[in-house]
C-alpha cells in the first residue's frame, strides 16, 4: 500500500474532523464499491453505531450507470468519531438519493461527507440530512456537487437541517457546487435551530414531562429520513436505534 499523507484541516473535506482519531485509523482501507448497473435500482443502508470511544470511517465509492438508481440511508450515531463518506458518480439519467441522520452527544464527532458527480446529462440527486446534537458533540455535513461539462438538465438538491440541544454542541453544514454545464438546477438549504419553546410549553401544559416532550419533537424532526425505506425490517431497526439514541440524549 502506498503511503498517503495524513489529512490536515486545510483540506475542506477534513476541516471539522477529529484528526487525532483519523491518525489512529491511518492509512484507511479502500472504499466499499457499489456499482449499480444500467437501469437497475439498489437500496443500501448503514447503521453506524460503534461502541463508546471507538473511531470508525466508512468510505463508499458508488457508480450508478445510465438510468440506474441508488437509495442510501445512513444513521450515524456511534463511537467517539464516526465518519461516513460517499463518493458518487452518476451516468445519464441516473438518480442518487441519500437520506441521513446524525445524532450525537458527549464529545462525539460525527460526519457525513459526500461528493456527487453528475458526469452525464439528465441525472438527478437528492440529499436530505437531519442532525440532532447535544452536549459537546460536533456533527458535520459536507456535500460537494460537481456537474460536468455537458451534464445538461442535471437536477440536484441538498436539504440539511440541524437541531442543537445545547449551546455547547456544534453543527456544520457545507454544501459546495462546482458547475460546468449551463442548463442545471441545484438547490440547497441549510438551517440550524433549537427545539420550539412554544411547542414545549404547549406539551407541558398538557402534562407531558420535559424529556417525553423533547423526545417526541426530535422524533418528528428525524422521522422523515426513514420514511421511504423499502425494507420494513431495516427501517424499524434504524428507527429504533435513532429513538434509543434520542432518548439517551434528552
Amino acid at each position: 500500500m502506498t503511503t498517503v499523507a495524513l489529512p490536515t484541516r486545510r483540506q475542506e473535506e477534513w476541516r471539522y474532523s477529529d484528526l487525532e482519531a483519523v491518525a489512529s485509523l491511518w492509512p484507511l482501507p479502500a472504499p466499499v464499491r457499489i456499482d449499480v448497473a444500467a437501469g437497475e435500482s439498489a437500496h443500501h443502508h448503514l447503521l453506524q453505531d460503534a461502541g463508546e470511544g471507538v473511531a470508525v470511517v466508512h468510505d463508499y465509492a458508488i457508480a450508478i450507470a445510465d438510468g440506474g438508481r441508488c437509495d442510501f440511508h445512513v444513521l450515524n450515531i456511534g463511537g467517539r468519531f464516526g465518519r461516513v463518506t460517499l463518493n458518487v458518480t452518476l451516468g445519464k439519467g441516473a438518480h442518487f438519493e441519500l437520506n441521513g441522520a446524525i445524532i450525537g452527544g458527549g464529545k462525539q464527532t460525527l460526519e457525513i461527507v459526500t461528493a456527487v458527480t453528475h458526469a452525464q446529462p439528465d441525472g438527478t440527486s437528492g440529499q436530505t440530512i437531519r442532525s440532532v446534537l447535544g452536549q459537546h458533540a460536533t456533527g458535520s455535513y459536507l456535500g460537494s456537487i460537481n456537474v460536468a461539462r455537458g451534464a445538461q438538465r442535471t437536477d440536484a438538491f441538498q436539504s440539511v437541517k440541524a437541531m442543537l440541544l445545547d449551546r455547547t454542541a456544534t453543527a456544520n453544514a457545507k454544501p459546495e457546487l462546482e458547475i460546468y454545464a449551463d442548463d442545471v438546477k441545484c438547490a440547497h438549504g441549510a438551517t440550524v435551530g433549537e427545539l420550539d419553546k412554544q411547542a414545549l410549553f404547549y406539551m407541558a401544559s398538557r402534562g407531558m414531562d420535559p424529556a417525553t416532550a423533547k423526545t417526541l419533537l426530535l422524533k418528528a424532526f428525524v422521522a422523515g429520513v426513514f420514511d421511504d425505506m423499502a425494507d420494513e425490517a431495516v427501517k424499524e431497526t434504524l428507527e429504533a436505534a435513532a429513538i434509543a439514541k434520542l432518548e439517551a440524549l434528552v
Binding site: 404547549y202 419533537l217 422523515g224
Partner: peptide, 21 residues
C-alpha cells in the same frame, strides 16, 4: 392561540400527555 406541532399527531400528543399525567 393553540400551538402547531408539525410531525406530531394529535393522538400521539394526547396519549403521551395523558400517560405522563
Amino acid at each position: 392561540y393553540p400551538v402547531e406541532i408539525p410531525g406530531v399527531s394529535n393522538l400521539q400528543f394526547l396519549r403521551e400527555s395523558l400517560n405522563s399525567q
